[in-house]
Design a binder for these strands. Structure first.
Lengths: 339, 339
DNA sequence: CCGCGCATTTACAACGTGGGAAACCTGACT
DNA sequence: AGTCAGGTTTCCCACGTTGTAAATGCGCGG
């Protein structure tokens, strides 16, 4: 077993509680006592036993982060940010993925792992409002992403419409005139893809660009493959865009590949903007201009909101909040030149 | 707070320990006592407090799984398998990724998180033998993947040479004659890519197929993009293979895309085999033949090995083992036809 | 010189669980 | 009836930590 407070106390000739006080930075400890104890702590390499601490405090010190897909770099990077930030607050993050399936999402929301975790950050895809209302677990829950619910939970998401407008406006400023949108989805109006499409549509109308269906390519998923195919369909349909705004970076990377094989140059012939700022985009042959959601900001907001509720306890409810972390347009080679 | 043994005991009119005995399936409990207690347990919805249990037992009930990249579907799926299997054994898995960077790998091996986890499963890329020898943490460590070390740790990996031979032999049996290899890497002889390349080379020589450098395409990474580019380079160099064996499924998927854009049909003109059996391969336009490492087997072997050492304690060392879970060739459309 | 107030330190209990051993109960055998 | 064996239940404690309250020590004003 490891070194405990008792071992340190014995060696330093003080009580267990005094050592505990030193460890926790308690105010009323004389400098010399503190120093002596600290020396022994360093000497023995004492590390607090988190299990015991958590038992005493009635918390586990763990939160779960349930994302749709770890295979998607955006989520992997977001997970990284949460793990890092929560780690700094002495919280351990349990990573789970739901596959975007409703049954899995319900399972987590309902409190699978209930006794193991103090709270849950969930990024739902298919979860329904009724699922949330039926929830009876008392562990705090924070929602991530665009889906909105009429249920009393904090909700963290960037302003996707504004972010999409920024990207679209950037292409307009470059003087592009036929700007396509790749990655629309069929489905609910509140979904992320619709919000980004809306931002695109607004800017296109406002600046006199075409917004016809022929400039919108629907995809099944969010992969490079989907992007490559969508771009191919668009070109095959006879549309010749001079810019493309993609739902996310993966689709954008796929689209750039198709453009390349069709002999179209990026950015000279077609400018490309993605969304997410995943690492891949920084190492492409043509580096990718993208809208970067502030992942650390999202991680921080979600974790803080969760821990705040945790600290407040079950009883005194905090008003459910809607938090919008920032975003930034990062311009790279894929939109560097003039047409 | 939750329901504790005390609450159940009170309600059932028995001692705390009796409830504990029921929960743990202790032998000497009369059927009627057991039934009565169980009824109350169900009624109140009692769930054991893992924190307390772990404190009492001196273990945390958590193991860490440190993989190079969660963004790679193979690792994501493998993580899934470990989480599921270990979960069945009442173990919680902490997922981490090292980015394949040596400093991170050393950090985990050295026992970052030492007091939090009971043991670690690590899939190293850059870790050096000296790093392992310098390790002073006493938490059990199990290594995953091909890199081999002269250090006393269990090691789980499929037989990559044999697996590659199976894939290559499959292409030979189809009557293919010019079989390329995509995804070789520069670097150490023990690395996975080299082993797969070796399997390919052996079968090619044995069956009188060419093994020249022009049939081998080196890639920087393991992504679809890498595969697409490697395939393009191969074709541009004037080689016209009638089959391709790829280091992994991602590369194979990229290769198929290039083949498609170049007007070559899969499998009629070029048969393609991948490696990993990731889910993507099952949903490609042309579904992908692949070598499927037995992921559940790997997960099971790694977890079992770790828990076995855990149970044995630090003292009585078990002989370090080398375990080889199985694999299987899964034939799909990408090798369905004759040339 | 006493006593008060404050800073510092300590003693104790409790978080929920399970191992070990003692206590209890039942029934059979002497 | 007394004793013993064996199954069943309970008691007590410890795991390592921290909140609370009590104890101790010190300086200073009266």
């Amino acid at each position: 077993m490891g070194i405990s407070l008792k071992d340190v106390a014995q060696r330093a000739g003080v009580s267990i509680k005094t050592v505990s006080n030193v460890v926790n930075g308690y105010r009323h400890v004389t400098p010399q006592t503190r120093q002596r104890v600290q020396r022994v702590i360093d000497e023995l390499g004492y590390r607090p036993n988190l299990t015991a601490r958590h038992l005493r405090k009635g918390r586990t010190g763990m939160i779960a982060l349930a994302l749709p897909e770890l295979g998607n770099p955006y989520f992997a990077e977001l997970a990284d940010a949460v793990i890092e930030y929560a780690g700094g607050l002495e919280y351990i993050v349990l990573l789970d993925h739901t596959g975007g399936r409703r049954d899995q999402e319900v399972l987590f929301a309902q409190g699978f792992r209930a006794r193991v975790i103090d709270g849950l950050i969930l990024s739902p895809i298919e979860l329904e409002n009724e699922d949330l209302l039926a929830r009876d677990s008392d562990a705090p829950l924070v929602l991530l992403g665009e889906r909105q619910y009429d249920a009393p939970y904090d909700h963290i998401a960037i302003d996707n419409v504004a972010a999409a407008r920024t990207a679209a406006a950037h292409l307009v400023e470059l003087g592009r005139r036929r700007i396509a949108f790749l990655g629309a989805r069929h489905g609910r109006a509140r979904q992320t893809a619709h919000l980004r499409l809306q931002g695109w549509r607004e800017v296109m109308s406002e600046t006199g660009r075409p917004t016809g269906e022929e400039f919108i390519a629907v995809t099944d998923g969010y992969t490079r493959e989907d992007g490559a195919q969508a771009m191919a369909r668009l070109l095959d349909s006879g549309v010749r865009p001079d810019a493309v705004f993609c739902y996310n970076d993966l689709i954008a990377i796929g689209a750039m590949r198709t453009l390349g094989t069709r002999g179209l140059r990026v950015p000279e012939d077609v400018a490309v903007v993605g969304f997410d700022d995943i690492e891949d985009g920084r190492y492409c042959a043509t580096t990718l201009t993208t809208v970067a959601p502030h992942k650390r900001g999202i991680a921080r907001a979600a974790t803080d909101a969760l821990l705040e509720r945790l600290a407040a306890g079950t009883g005194n409810a905090i008003e459910p909040r809607r938090l919008q972390p920032g975003f930034a347009l990062i311009t790279r080679e894929s939109t560097a030149g003039k047409p």
